[in-house]
Design a protein around this nucleic acid. Structure first.
Length: 655
DNA sequence: ATATCCTGTCATTAT
DNA sequence: ATATAATGACAGGAT
């Protein structure tokens, strides 16, 4: 516990310092509260137990899905990347900040590579932004499609922007992933509107399906997702990429106009980027530039672009969840003057035909529109995961997911009481009246295995998200999947799951257990639940927590036993070595003793008494006196004295 | 049939 | 005061 407190305080200090460094001191919570639930403050600050359950509820739905544990080593990388990209971003591009930033970053990366053959594409303002050469940062490696790098794993999307730049962005998968990750749930209506517009223009697209998907219930979503995944080639897990690629290619072909700068002008641009620009100034400049760029009523697509861009740099500036802080809270940003830097940069740009960049915005919007399907899928997949699958993130009771699932539950609900229904529930398999389509992890979402062996090969459930997306697992997801464990094999709901469904509780057992306590209490109080439902909710949460605690406890116990066994083995080895050493010492002592006796006999053989007669070697022993003088002591006397001593001891004992 | 293991649950205590 | 974690003990299913 003491460690936990220390850890908490250290983490808070680090977080505070980092936030103050980036100039976000006042409105960060309000900003986050508008975007995320729970806010950043609710980020889990550690646990007292190394085996404590993974706080998925606090690790999810924060910071674009990439929540940052304050102790996470990637946090520095994250903010360093963000500072770099904010500086670039807020250099003042009025109309195409995202594209320009991505291009600038790419140019920085390219120049750095020219100067330094090493892989460090982040060289420059943020030299330590990527300690881990992730695929997105290396030689145009593919950013894993939809791969969630896990909480705090800054190098993921941020590398796609900072390291990869346009070269990586040309990879349509990476680009889609970047875009998809930065569409907030609250943007879904906008996306849907755009999707509908696109549907009107391109009725052959997947928009109807996706719109339907967004409005459907969870089970329907699973079916739809299955339908979407079915016609695709199994060898190609990313079928939509084919639609995106031409768009991106055309977009970047326009971007190639900027490549005509040439190295000498490039140096003009890259060198300011490397300056230690005041972040505050840069942010204000960027915000002012963006706002200036609006220049009156922006067309809807431009507004959409700005919104997307302001919500974390939809394209290249991925994984910058704070990137739009200034846009969101401009009051906190005091304009310090952009200086000649912005003007120099954008004079170049303006002189080199910015007209094409207007069309580039349109193309970008079209690209984004086309990628909306992927956005939808990503967003919806996350929601589906949180609702039905193992990740089980917090979902507010008022969310569409809950409402949809709630409705589906209510439709199937037939039980009327808690105790009677609950206690009669069979341990295996629900009543025939239940027709739930259980997902992979509702029943058991933990790893009951004590062994430290690698998790078994997980076969994705037929309707699971994994089966659809076929993406490699991030560490977090692997961990989660590991926790799901054997549940995939037996897709049976837990008893509490059945209880919850029997009582028409609009949460899964996983949700009930994983949701933050505030949300849980809110659901209890404001959920319009009956007392029986409230009691069941509390019981499910208590049992779920205790179940996880028991698992952790047993794992700890097994680990402790293993450690003790290891210690026993080490002690056995130590005892063996000590015994060997004792034998060696005894042997050498014997040898020394024999040497002494031999030398004594030799000396006694040459010794003479006062009368000049030779001494009997058997009757005398050599003795070294206190002054170093060697004396011949008669053995009989010594033996007699020894005998008398033993006699005295015996007499004393008898007394 | 029995032993053992695994897991969930309860009760209790600590944090 | 409440929530939660930790843990011993027990029960029941699986092997």
């Amino acid at each position: 516990m003491h460690n936990g407190k220390k850890y908490l305080s250290e983490s808070l200090i680090q977080l505070t310092i980092l936030l103050s460094l980036i100039g976000v001191r006042v409105d960060i919570d309000s900003y986050l509260s508008g975007y995320y639930d729970p806010p950043l403050i609710d980020i889990d600050l550690g646990s007292s137990s190394a085996y404590a359950q993974t706080p998925f509820h606090s690790l999810r739905d924060t910071l674009d899905g990439y929540s940052l544990h304050p102790k996470c080593p990637e946090l520095d990388d994250f903010f360093a990347s963000r500072r770099l990209l904010d500086q670039v971003r807020h250099l003042g591009s009025p109309r195409f900040p995202t594209q320009l930033n991505a291009w600038l970053v790419q140019q920085v990366s390219a120049s750095s590579k020219a100067d330094d053959e090493e892989e460090d594409a982040d060289a420059g303002p943020s030299p330590n932004t990527d300690p881990d050469p992730t695929p997105g940062c290396q030689d145009g490696g593919h950013l894993p499609w939809g791969t969630s790098p896990g909480p705090g794993t800054g190098p993921g999307p941020s590398d796609a922007a900072a390291c990869g730049g346009l070269k990586e962005a040309r990879d349509s998968k990476a680009a889609q992933a970047v875009v998809c990750r930065h569409l907030k749930p609250h943007q879904l209506p906008t996306v849907l509107q755009q999707q509908q517009q696109q549907q009107e223009e391109h009725p052959e697209d997947e928009a109807p399906l996706l719109t339907q998907l967004a409005d459907s219930s969870t089970l329907e979503q699973e079916n739809l997702l299955e339908n979407m995944a079915t016609p695709s080639d199994p060898a190609d897990p990313h079928p939509p990429a084919a639609d995106i690629d031409p768009q991106w290619n055309s977009l970047f072909s326009d971007m190639d106009v900027l490549d005509s700068f040439g190295p000498e002008r490039l140096s003009d641009i890259t060198s300011p980027i490397s300056q230690d620009v005041s972040l505050l100034d840069a942010m204000v400049a960027g915000a002012a530039g963006v706002h200036r760029s609006a220049g009156g009523p922006a067309p809807p697509q431009q507004r959409g672009l700005l919104r997307l861009e302001s919500s974390g740099s939809a394209l290249g500036l991925a994984a910058l969840p704070f990137a739009s802080v200034c846009d969101m809270v401009p009051d906190t940003c005091q304009h310090g003057g952009g200086g000649g830097l912005d003007e120099a940069v954008f004079d170049h740009i303006n002189q080199l035909g910015l007209g094409g960049l207007d069309s580039m915005d349109d193309q970008l919007m079209r690209t984004l529109d086309r990628s909306d399907s992927q956005l939808l899928e990503d967003v919806d997949s996350d929601s589906g995961l949180s609702l039905e699958s193992s990740s089980g993130g917090p979902v507010s009771p008022g969310s569409s997911e809950i409402s949809s699932s709630s409705s589906s539950y209510r439709e199937e609900c037939g039980a009327t009481g808690y105790s009677s229904e609950v206690d009669s529930l069979p341990a295996k398999g629900g009543p025939a009246s239940y027709s739930y389509s259980y997902s992979d992890s509702d029943s058991v979402w933990h790893n009951h295995s004590y062994s430290s062996s690698p998790p078994p090969l997980l076969l994705p459930a037929p309707g699971s998200r994994r089966a659809i997306k076929q993406e490699p697992l991030s560490e977090e997801e692997e961990e989660e999947e590991e926790e799901v464990g054997g549940a995939l094999g037996r897709a049976e709901p837990s008893r509490d799951e059945l209880r919850a469904r029997a009582m028409c509780i609009p949460f899964s057992a996983r949700q009930i257990v994983d949701m933050p306590v505030e949300e849980f209490l809110e659901a209890l109080e404001g959920g319009g639940l009956t007392p029986q439902q409230v009691a069941l909710l509390r019981d499910i949460r208590r049992r779920g927590k205790n179940k996880l605690a028991a698992q952790n406890c047993r794992r700890r116990k097994m680990d402790a036993i293993a450690r003790l066994q290891e210690e026993v083995n080490e002690l056995h080895a130590l005892r063996h070595s000590l015994r060997q050493e004792r034998k060696r010492v005894a042997k050498s002592a014997d040898a020394a003793r024999q040497q002494v006796e031999q030398l004594s006999r030799l000396l006694l053989a040459g010794a003479r008494d006062e009368a000049g007669r030779p001494l009997d070697p058997e009757a005398f022993a050599l003795e070294v006196g206190p002054d170093g003088e060697v004396l011949a002591r008669p053995l009989r006397r010594a033996a007699a004295a020894a005998r008398s001593n033993t006699d005295k001891r015996k007499k004393k004992k008898k007394k």
